[in-house]
């Protein structure tokens, strides 16, 4: 699929990528910025993902994770920045992004509720099929062939995500966990090279979360690159090869799970900074973290003020 041999390690990519050097870069987002009027939801975010890699995207509520996904998939046209998939620049048009090979799921499940699970998956394969109205009305051999292939593929995918018996069930009648899995099957139907999962385990019980993790690993084993937004830290840190942290629209840290987990700025961004009842030693540490956090934040705050003035 790739046209130009892109350099395997870009300057923006972190040095700590495990075994990434040998793999092709699938997605590269550079300087992605999304502005809604005076609000900057995503500011100058770089992210690159290599083949067969699972990248986690975490951050507090409102950090701009989903907005970033929408910029990648063309639902939003980013105010600035370029998104390339295997060396080709992606236009901000959703169906063309899917055509190119980027598929996604949604944070709040957006299945086609009155269609069956099978039909949902078949719609997912829309860009990989071709027959038009004429073939459909005349029922040409081409139509029959493609329809059969489409049904078979949907059945395989439903089996792959672990719901082989739900094919004829209307999506709205599926249990919650199955709806999440169906969204993944639907996304996989477009034969993507990169899958973007927006909170795939939200609302799941521990058992379902384990199954979801297993599913993501199996998707990776199919050769796909995966980017996961998730609030479940255990899920993220046990699953991902690399984790990026978004805070207030900016990428705060990116690195190996262990590095990110240990980073005080991340802890501070999630938990805030403690104020009282702190033992002296800890207080000192916290102060240091606070200072670093403030330093990290000084820039965006002033910049935001600037943009407000200019507008």
């Amino acid at each position: 699929m790739s046209t130009a041999a892109s350099p395997t390690s870009s300057p923006g990519a972190p040095t700590s990528v495990p075994s990434g050097a040998a793999r092709e870069t699938v997605l590269r987002a550079e300087g992605v910025t999304m502005r809604f009027g005076g609000l900057v939801a995503v500011r100058d975010v770089d992210l690159s993902v290599s083949e067969g890699e699972i990248v986690g995207l975490i951050g507090p509520n409102g950090a701009g994770k989903t907005t970033f996904f929408n910029c990648l998939t063309g639902l939003y046209a980013p105010t600035a920045g370029v998104v390339t998939y295997r060396g080709t620049v992606l236009p901000p048009v959703p169906h063309k992004v899917t055509q190119a090979g980027v598929a996604r799921t949604f944070q709040n499940i957006r299945l086609f509720h009155n269609m069956t699970a099978m039909e949902n998956v078949q719609v997912g394969g829309h860009t990989r099929t071709k027959v038009g109205l004429f073939d459909a009305v005349v029922r040409t051999p081409r139509f029959r062939r493609e329809e059969e292939a489409s049904v078979q593929k949907a059945r395989d995918l439903l089996a792959f995500v672990g719901m082989p018996r739900a094919a004829q069930t209307v999506a709205r009648n599926l249990p919650y966990g199955d709806q999440r899995r169906l969204e993944i099957a639907r996304a996989l139907a477009s034969d993507p090279g990169l899958l973007l999962l927006d909170e795939p385990t939200a609302g799941m019980n521990p058992q379902e979360t384990r199954e979801a993790k297993d599913l993501v690993l199996r998707i990776r084993d199919r050769g796909l690159a995966v980017v996961v937004i998730e609030h479940d830290m255990r899920f993220i840190f046990s699953l991902c090869d690399r984790v990026a942290v978004l805070v207030q629209g900016q990428k705060l840290v990116e690195g190996l799970p262990a590095e990110v987990q240990a980073d005080e700025r991340v802890v501070a961004a999630y938990l805030g900074t403690p104020t009282d009842d702190v033992v002296d030693e800890e207080a000192l540490e916290v102060e240091a973290a606070e200072a670093r956090f403030a330093a990290a934040h000084a820039q965006p705050v002033t910049r935001a003020a600037d943009t407000e003035e200019t507008q």
Partner: peptide, 19 residues
């Protein structure tokens, strides 16, 4: 058919259909 399913998908959720 493929086209009809896409129509219904648009009716159900146009944004998701586009995605």
């Amino acid at each position: 058919s493929r086209v009809g399913r896409a129509w219904v998908a648009i009716r159900e959720d146009e944004t998701a259909a586009a995605a």
